[in-house]
Amino acid sequence: MDSLLMNRRKFLYQFKNVRWAKGRRETYLCYVVKRRDSATSFSLDFGYLRNKNGCHVELLFLRYISDWDLDPGRCYRVTWFTSWSPCYDCARHVADFLRGNPNLSLRIFTARLYFCEDRKAEPEGLRRLHRAGVQIAIMTFKDYFYCWNTFVENHERTFKAWEGLHENSVRLSRQLRRILLPLYEVDDLRDAFRTLGL
């Protein structure tokens, strides 16, 4: 685990949702873990991680939370803000982990979509996460503002959007929607068949 708060310049560089993210070879993951008790929730931990020694950050987080003694009788909500969406292998590990821990839910807000040039399996990884109940969305100004005030050593500076933040968020949201769209259509068809008694 690194220091509790991320350096301001590092956050702006790593999380910037630019179309061509040249040189950004690491994934950063800011997280919040909450325990839900009926209508209220309690923050248990927050911080950030990054890839280390060739190990992807998603797997580092799974190792980290596996060391906790999570009460199977309580519900936990984990929220990630990531600089890149998970690769196919990490998505598979996360989905398997969630299946083994049904009392834990995960939301992922990502700055950019990761696509490995040689495999093109990453969209299927995102669909697999979605099927496992993970809520996946692209970061918007509101999410960047929250991260800036929660995870960044900002020295009381106000978060300022860079040129193109909104447009890139919209573009990436549409792309993510197209990736997940087949799932929505299949769910709609299943509901229609059930309604018709087929």
Rank of each mutant, 00 (worst) to 15 (best):
L113H: 01
L113Q: 08
L113W: 03
L113I: 01
L113E: 01
L113V: 09
L113F: 15
L113S: 12
L113N: 00
L113A: 03
L113Y: 02
L113G: 13
L113R: 13
L113P: 07
L113M: 01
L113K: 02
L113T: 03
L113C: 04
L113D: 00
Y114G: 11
Y114S: 02
Y114R: 06
Y114I: 02
Y114P: 15
Y114C: 01
Y114M: 00
Y114F: 03
Y114K: 00
Y114V: 00
Y114W: 06
Y114H: 00
Y114T: 02
Y114A: 07
Y114D: 15
Y114N: 00
Y114E: 00
Y114L: 01
Y114Q: 00
F115D: 04
F115W: 15
F115K: 14
F115R: 10
F115C: 10
F115H: 15
F115I: 02
F115Y: 15
F115L: 09
F115T: 02
F115V: 07
F115G: 05
F115M: 14
F115E: 05
F115S: 04
F115Q: 10
F115P: 01
F115A: 03
F115N: 09
C116P: 04
C116V: 14
C116M: 10
C116Y: 15
C116I: 11
C116F: 14
C116Q: 04
C116T: 06
C116S: 02
C116E: 03
C116D: 01
C116R: 07
C116K: 06
C116W: 08
C116G: 08
C116L: 09
C116A: 12
C116N: 10
C116H: 11
E117S: 12
E117Y: 08
E117F: 05
E117R: 03
E117K: 07
E117T: 13
E117P: 06
E117A: 08
E117Q: 11
E117G: 10
E117M: 09
E117C: 14
E117V: 11
E117L: 08
E117D: 14
E117H: 10
E117I: 10
E117W: 06
E117N: 11
D118G: 03
D118I: 02
D118P: 15
D118V: 01
D118C: 02
D118K: 01
D118Q: 02
D118Y: 08
D118R: 14
D118A: 06
D118E: 07
D118H: 11
D118N: 14
D118T: 03
D118M: 04
D118F: 02
D118W: 03
D118L: 12
D118S: 04
R119F: 05
R119Q: 12
R119N: 13
R119D: 13
R119H: 13
R119W: 11
R119L: 08
R119K: 11
R119G: 13
R119Y: 09
R119S: 11
R119P: 06
R119A: 09
R119C: 09
R119E: 12
R119V: 05
R119I: 01
R119M: 10
R119T: 11
K120A: 08
K120G: 08
K120S: 08
K120N: 08
K120V: 05
K120W: 12
K120L: 06
K120H: 13
K120P: 02
K120E: 08
K120M: 10
K120T: 09
K120R: 14
K120D: 07
K120F: 15
K120C: 12
K120Q: 11
K120I: 02
K120Y: 15
A121H: 07
A121N: 13
A121V: 05
A121E: 09
A121S: 09
A121G: 06
A121K: 14
A121W: 09
A121C: 04
A121Q: 09
A121T: 06
A121D: 10
A121I: 05
A121F: 13
A121M: 14
A121R: 12
A121Y: 00
A121P: 13
A121L: 10
E122L: 03
E122S: 06
E122T: 05
E122G: 15
E122H: 12
E122A: 11
E122D: 07
E122R: 03
E122V: 04
E122Q: 15
E122M: 00
E122W: 04
E122P: 05
E122N: 15
E122I: 00
E122K: 00
E122C: 07
E122Y: 06
E122F: 14
P123A: 12
P123D: 05
P123E: 05
P123S: 07
P123V: 04
P123K: 07
P123F: 07
P123G: 04
P123L: 08
P123T: 01
P123M: 04
P123Y: 12
P123R: 14
P123W: 05
P123Q: 13
P123H: 12
P123I: 01
P123C: 13
P123N: 10
